[in-house]
Computed example of a mutant assay.
Amino acid sequence: MAPIRLAIVGLGKIARDQHLGAIEATDGVNLVAVASRNAQLEGVHCFHDIADLLASDVGIDAVSLCTPPQGRFAQANAALDAGKHVMLEKPPGASLSEVYALEALAKAKGLTLFSTWHSRAAAAVEPARALLVRRKIKSVSVEWKEDVRHWHPGQAWIWEPGGLGVFDPGINALSIVTRILPEPFHLVRSDLTFPANRAAPIAASLAFEMVSGTPVSAEFDWRQTGPQTWDIRVETEEGPVVLTHGGSRLIVDGEPQIVEEDREYRNLYRDFVSLVRSGTSDTDFSPLVHVADAFMLGRRIQTEEFED
């Protein structure tokens, strides 16, 4: 089959750090255009925005949206309306209502919509999922702490409504937990810490319960310096199951099982090619549902001002 002709919309840090290399390494997809207000890429067609891209005579089959979640609905809606398949960087949107509207539009037009969760594509996630189906879970604890100044330097959008604040990385943890646990869970407590000068939280302490009553806790913080922490620990009657390094490493009963280099975005583009060719979509929005619940049930705690 002919390769998918792809355009990237938003040529910022995540596109350059992850998407460009992953596209180049993936069979079945070719990057032919970019749309960016502030950057260009040599060797492909360049446009100021998605409107200019879609109005041009450059042939594309799909777009990968790497822009901030605020304003992404209009971009995705325009692409779907123009008959293009759409791949959404996480989080898939700024609100639940808009992502469900996109899901309905893609279905009505017979197009692929792919809500990506790059941490789910880490090496240890599927082995952990298969293992936990066979074990009796006693508790789950998540510790996801990193340095916002390192990972998001000068990115003001993350502190605005819809930018999610600490849930920008925290949703990665939730994407893994919603994948590996064998039963649903729901939020029962949410404490959100907001800097006095910001509209989005810098830390979150969450308590969930599985349908069976098994506790699930999560601690997210954007103020950690030095080594970063991306750990999920599942205590089972048979022994501990631990995912570390953002889901790329698996330790079972104290014994390392999987250690693998970062292939997350290559896996995502492989899956996107498969979805487009099969005429299907992947629109699991459950991680965003849990984030929305955290804001709905959140108790606001104010802390000192934060400056980038």
Rank of each mutant, 00 (worst) to 15 (best):
L131Q: 04
S281I: 05
E183W: 05
T229I: 15
L297Q: 08
T116H: 09
D61E: 04
E237M: 07
T112F: 03
T244D: 14
K13T: 14
V241A: 04
R5M: 03
A130C: 11
V242M: 11
P227R: 01
A51K: 08
E307Y: 07
N267C: 07
V29N: 00
T236H: 04
P227C: 08
L20F: 06
S274L: 11
F194R: 13
V276W: 04
A35H: 00
E219M: 06
T178P: 00
A292M: 15
D293Y: 15
K90T: 05
G59F: 08
R300I: 14
A294M: 06
D191T: 04
F208A: 06
V276L: 05
R263W: 02
T303K: 09
Q40S: 06
D271K: 07
R134H: 14
V259H: 15
R5D: 13
C66N: 09
A108G: 11
F114I: 01
G71N: 03
G254C: 12
G246T: 05
L6N: 02
H186Y: 15
D27H: 15
V58K: 03
L65V: 12
G213D: 13
T244G: 02
P287Y: 11
F208C: 00
A123W: 02
A82Q: 11
V234A: 14
L250S: 00
V289N: 10
W157V: 08
S119L: 15
L54I: 09
T280M: 11
V9W: 02
E235H: 07
G165Q: 01
V188P: 12
G110R: 07
I171D: 10
W222A: 06
F114G: 01
L11V: 08
R179V: 10
D27G: 13
